[in-house]
Write a protein that binds this DNA or RNA. Sequence first.
RNA 1: GGGGUGUUAGCUCAGCUGGUUCAGAGCACCUGCCUUACAAGCAGGGGGUCACUGGUUCGAAUCCAGUACGCCCCA
Length: 874
Amino acid sequence: MSVSTKYNPREVEQKWFDSWMQRGFFSSKPNPKKEPYTIVIPPPNVTGVLHMGHMLNNTIQDVLIRRARMQGKEACWVPGTDHASIATEAKVVAMLKEKGIEKSDLTREEFLKHAWEWKEKYGGIILEQLKKLGASCDWDRTRFTMEEDMSAAVIEVFVDLYRKGKIYRGVRMVNWDPKGGTALSDEEVIPKDTMAKMYHLQYEVVGQEGQFITIATSRPETIMADVAVAVNPNDERYKQLHGQKVRIPLLGREIPIILDEYVSIDFGTGALKVTPAHDLNDYELGQKHKLPTIDILDDAGFLNEKAQLYVGQDRFAARRNIVKDLEEAGLLVKVEEYASVLQTSERTGAVIEPRLSMQWFCKMDDMAKPAKEAVMEDEIRLHPPKFKNMYRSWMENIRDWCISRQLWWGQQIPAYYLPDGSYVVATTAEEALRLARQQAGNEGLQASDLRQDEDVLDTWFSSWLWPISVFNGFKDPDNKDILYYYPTNDLVTAPEILFFWVARMIMAGYEFRNEPPFKNVYLTGIVRDAQGRKMSKQLGNSPDPLDLIDQYGADGVRTGMLFSSQAGNDLMFDEKLIEQGRNFSNKIWNAFRLIKGWEVDENLPCPNETAMKWYESRFNEAFVQIEDHFSKFRISDALLAVYKLVWDDFCSNYLEMIKPAYQQPIDARTLVTTIDFLEKNLKVLHPFMPFITEELWHELKERKEKEYLIVAAWPKKDKFDKNIIDQMEVVLKVVAAIRNVRNSKNIPNNKQLALSVKVMGQHDYEPFLPIISKLGNMSEISFVQENLEGAISFVEAGDEFFIPMDGNIDVEAERERLVKELEYTQGFLNSVAKKLSNERFVNGAPEAVISNERKKQADAEAKIKALEQSLASL
RNA sequence: GGGGUGUUAGCUCAGCUGGUUCAGAGCACCUGCCUUACAAGCAGGGGGUCACUGGUUCGAAUCCAGUACGCCCCA
């Protein structure tokens, strides 16, 4: 046979993927005769390219969906992307800039036209990459969060929640980029460690000339926006100042001293200036104490007329100037350096200005309640469950969700402002006009009098609807798809977005369909590099997944990723793992080559009944374990169990037992049975390694048009004979001991040895003799009553085994070895005996444990007896 | 600062309900093999005070408390 000794994935993977697509194995339609099994993909960012995190995440989804498909369920995996408003808008702005176009030169419509062009051109890349991995999504169902129906759902939901009183407008502190002229999300802000200066300033106490309180601030240019000085009520130093007022330096405006335990006594001077317009903590303090806010900065970071001083100066220039002036006035006590974190803009590098602005909010407390309970009551299960705690604490301390973004790429907020500044919320401009006329009592209002809110909605405000909207559950709430596929089964995602996304989907599920969106949430870990760093583009420490697939095959990459990926635990990525995956592919390939190469001789009797009986039981035993792992979402354990079954039990043991001598034919019964075993192995391997298994499935036999492994029936749990498994375990230990003798005595494998067995225990070796003989390469096996002289001996299961050495035996070394083993066994026996002589153990422990200990005792005693006899006969 | 979570072989990690599936896997390492399916392989082997201290228990890697160190989330 001239088949390559190396499996070459490149030749087969694309072929089978195309073939599956053509035959429609991935596509799903509601089928009342079948149980649905549904996964919605966590929609990757439309600007994204495949990274290792996606690989892990989507491999797991594919494993789950392929297994379900083979189990005969109606498996539906819905793919798609989200519009990622911030990331995409940034990409489009950058692309335009390269062409010499500024966003500010464009109208909204013009900009969106460019953005859509960009999306059409680059938006599908990541999905194409997923196909290389083998992702068996129903690709005809691919959705995008900004396509027409999905956007309509978002608008409908906004209007609905607004009318239920769950959406409102309010002031909030945002990360403002004065250079870029936009608010940024927290993710776009880069903290930089720097040395900052802490200025100690003196505020004069009103009515006590010459009395000062010293505050510490890193932003002296904002003192004109101060509305109070805060101290801790327990701070003895300031007790006499409670209820007093102080004067802002230079400006002279009077502000109160307020008391709040928020102020730490030992940081700075223990006195804090309160500037609600320019600091988040101060803002909250201001709200709590009902203080006014004075905003002294404009969009570009220059001081405005409210500052009264330094008007028109840049914030940094103003800082330099005010420090100088304060110093001259003698109000600057000292300047301290301290380590601090400077927030900067990812895009412009500008120092972020915390800025108050009017934003839209979604109320969370009502919706959070059922969402919290669903998880706490295990209606929705998190895997691993350790995330329940985190989820609960988040849901209990949830804040309202800021859903507006100062961007164009996204669903524009359906709020329309009237000339008088009031507004209406409506799904269409026409409806808005009608409402506006009603609200204003002015039938003369025209569409042109209304101005739609400029902002768009947060991308999560689209994706929280994803499990419903992919099945058109808003447009058509009783359509066949949503009724059949929803609630979906399993969601596979990263813990990082447990709050951003998962929790909100759960809320949306109950709010809009009164049902959870899914039953299980599998949380993957983060893929890190060997040094434990998160893989990122900036660090350049992430291998290109497509290169890996090219090098090792998708099957190798998939298994490599899964080998070390317990749910919820980070994965230290090492290319070695992928190599191991590839090697496993190769092992399977070669097992196939061996079987494929056999000639049949119909006249031969079958000598392998014991081996076949054993492997059948072993497979069934392992299969029960595998299913158990799957049922508990222990995907990595399931893979490892399959790996060991195939590599150790099937290849290393079973195939070696039945393998005919070189160029000898095999009997028909063994061949048929072995092919059947291989097929069963391929089935349990398929979810993990879809390509090689499909390839071998077709290489093994002629198959009918739709007789593909991808839709072959998943094995069923079946009985197994534990007795033969246990006996074989002993037999394999005997074989290992024989091989160990060869190894330690430098006896070549091709030299046959004789074996004598002195049976003292209950084991029946008779049916296994051909196996021992073959695996150990024995010339003969005999049963004896007496110890053999001049032989190496070992004890297994209380029975003694002898291999004659023609007198070439190092008696002293042998004695030493036996004594060592004897001592160990005696020690072991002592510990067991001690346990059994302990009355409280015997009374307290369950019967099974005690009888087990008794068995251990008996085994050890037998072994000691055998070892002693061996020693004696040396 | 608050909460969560972890520490098991040189490395990456399993170990589920406390008790022989309890100290395990893979990689790495050592020895011997190109033995006709596979050197991307085969056979064999060495290697651990289960972070530390105490407690509960007949019995603890496993449960509890504290300590040290690490990571995550929130402030």
